[in-house]
Amino acid sequence: MQEKLSQSHHQTVKKAALGGAFLMAMSAVGPGFLTQTATFTQSEKANFGFAILICILVDIIVQLNIWRIIVVAGKRAQLIANEVVPGLGYLLSALVALGGLFFNIGNVAGAGLGLNVLFGIPVIWGAILSAIFAIGILIVKNALKYVDWTVQILAIIAVLVLIYMLIVTKIPYEQAVSHTFAPTKIDFYSILTIVGGTVGGYISFAGGHRLLEGGAKGQADIKYVNLGALTGIGLASVIRVMLFLVGLAVVLTGTKLDPTNPAASIFKTAAGSFGLKFFGLLLFAAGMSSIIGSTFTSTSFLDYAVNDRSVRFRDYLTVGFIAFATIVFALVGQPAKVLVVVGALNGLILPIALAILLVAALKEPIMGVRYHHPIWLSITGWIVVLFMAFASLKTIFTLF
């Protein structure tokens, strides 16, 4: 009987690990992800490959640390933070939820614009339909199962769209590879921006909290941490590399991308009106998956104080979270200044959150007496903390 329970647990946690991988990856692949990649590909050309390479290495360090500590402790990040310093978890919750709340404005706008490109319906109505769809997925009974299915389908759509674009575009592979490993110029700002956009704010915790809610707990489930984190990083990285290669092929022809929508320019230039439709599909997939990822993770930071699940407090948070973003977009559009400030905030959340968890990893009452955090993860984790703290503070001082 115990063996059957063990097999059932492992199957459940394995599904949760893969669900967490797709949730994390597709949370990262939002409308901002598409715009950043297109913009930096135009300004840096093949040298942007080096920034992507550094981003992938930082992603691995951050996600393996955060997922591992959350799962071994068996608690959400904010509860761990409260055990490190009483009250610290409430600060972390506020930072993550606030960043996710305002970034959802861009996610809703992106999904609405995607439907506008595909079907010609007004962007605001596309945003409202996307919001309703996301709420339905997140509050339905057995929501985690439908969340997993949805983000996996959206990931498949994104990958297939980009594979098609690679096929119809002449890609300068040799130049891309050579500059990735031997860049002629390094742009510090681009590295900071894409790292923050891939593992900043709520994205850092999306997979770890999904794995925790799927039943993972303790050292026995560390192998699923590795499976989920590396799969998610791999998926997000593949999507970014494919978009970078298509964009590089376009900008090397001398094409100037439209600054208001540089990613759309890439698809239209490479494959005409048909390519633009494909961009609409990709933008809708990116926006929808990010709405779901942002809302799931941000609300997971806000409902831990409520023990009576019959109240369905998480569902009310979910509706309010998505409705707020949709209403703000409907009334004032996409407030660029707010999103820039929140972007800096999300970049600052990463070193704060990672530092808290690295401290927690050394505390026996939190992690257990038999757990020893790998030295290489601790050292590289603190290097990332220092790098991102310096970069984030420099960015904030520049803004103000």
Score class of each variant (00 low, 15 high):
Trp376His: 06
Ile186Leu: 12
Thr184Lys: 14
Gly207Tyr: 04
Gly218Tyr: 13
Ala176Ser: 15
Ala97Cys: 14
Ile56Thr: 12
Thr269Met: 01
Leu138Glu: 07
Gly32Ile: 09
Thr35Ser: 14
Gly247Thr: 13
Val251Ser: 04
Ala264Met: 01
Val238Lys: 00
Gly234Gln: 03
Gln42Asn: 06
Ile383Lys: 15
Ala38Ser: 13
Ala305Trp: 08
Thr39Met: 00
Trp376Glu: 00
Ala236Trp: 02
Leu317His: 02
Gln219Lys: 14
Val359Asp: 03
Leu331Ile: 14
Val123Gln: 13
Gly207Pro: 13
Ile379His: 10
Asp187Met: 11
Ile80Ser: 07
Ala127Asn: 11
Ile105Leu: 10
Pro374His: 11
Lys363Leu: 01
Phe22Thr: 15
Ser190Gly: 14
Phe321Tyr: 10
Trp382Met: 10
Leu53Trp: 12
Tyr164Gly: 07
Phe274Ser: 03
Trp376Val: 13
Ser290Ala: 06
Glu213Trp: 00
Leu245Val: 14
Val246Trp: 03
Ile128Trp: 09
Leu118Gly: 09
Leu34Cys: 08
Trp149Asn: 03
Ser265Met: 03
Leu18His: 01
Leu230Ser: 03
Gly247Ala: 05
Thr180His: 11
Leu113Thr: 15
Leu64Arg: 11
Leu252Ser: 09
Ser8Asp: 05
Leu212Pro: 05
Phe102Pro: 14
Gly275Asn: 03
Phe387Tyr: 10
Gln334Glu: 07
Ser8Ala: 12
Ala73Gly: 05
Ser310Glu: 02
Ser298Asn: 04
Ala285Thr: 01
Val385Trp: 08
Val241Gly: 00
Ile327Met: 01
Lys268Gln: 08
Leu115Arg: 07
Thr37Glu: 01
Ile139Trp: 13
Ala131Lys: 12
Pro122Glu: 07
Gln219Asn: 10
Ser93Ile: 14
Asp308Gly: 02
Ala51Met: 04
Ile379Ala: 12
Asn261Glu: 03
Gly126Cys: 03
Gly106His: 09
Val369Leu: 09
Pro183Trp: 05
Met26Cys: 14
Ile203Gly: 09
Ser273Asp: 10
Phe274Leu: 08
Gly32Cys: 15
Ala134Arg: 01
Gln36Glu: 13
Phe40Leu: 09
Leu57Met: 14
Gln7Glu: 02
Glu3Ile: 00
Ala46Ile: 14
Ala81Thr: 00
Ala109Trp: 07
Val62Ala: 15
Thr37Met: 09
Leu302Gln: 01
Lys75Ala: 11
Leu192His: 12
His373Met: 03
Leu354Gln: 08
Gly280Met: 06
Ile349Gly: 02
Ile239Pro: 01
Arg314His: 01
Thr169His: 15
Asp59His: 11
Ser378Thr: 15
Trp149Arg: 15
Ala17Leu: 05
Gln152Thr: 04
Gln63Cys: 05
His372Tyr: 10
Ala206Lys: 07
Gln152Asp: 00
Ser237Ala: 11
Ala16Asp: 02
Ile366Gln: 02
Trp382Phe: 15
Val72Leu: 11
Gln42Val: 10
Met1Leu: 01
Lys223Asp: 13
Phe48Thr: 02
Leu101Trp: 12
Thr37Arg: 04
Val385Arg: 11
Asp258Phe: 04
Gly214Gln: 01
Gly207Val: 03
Leu252Glu: 05
Ala73Glu: 06
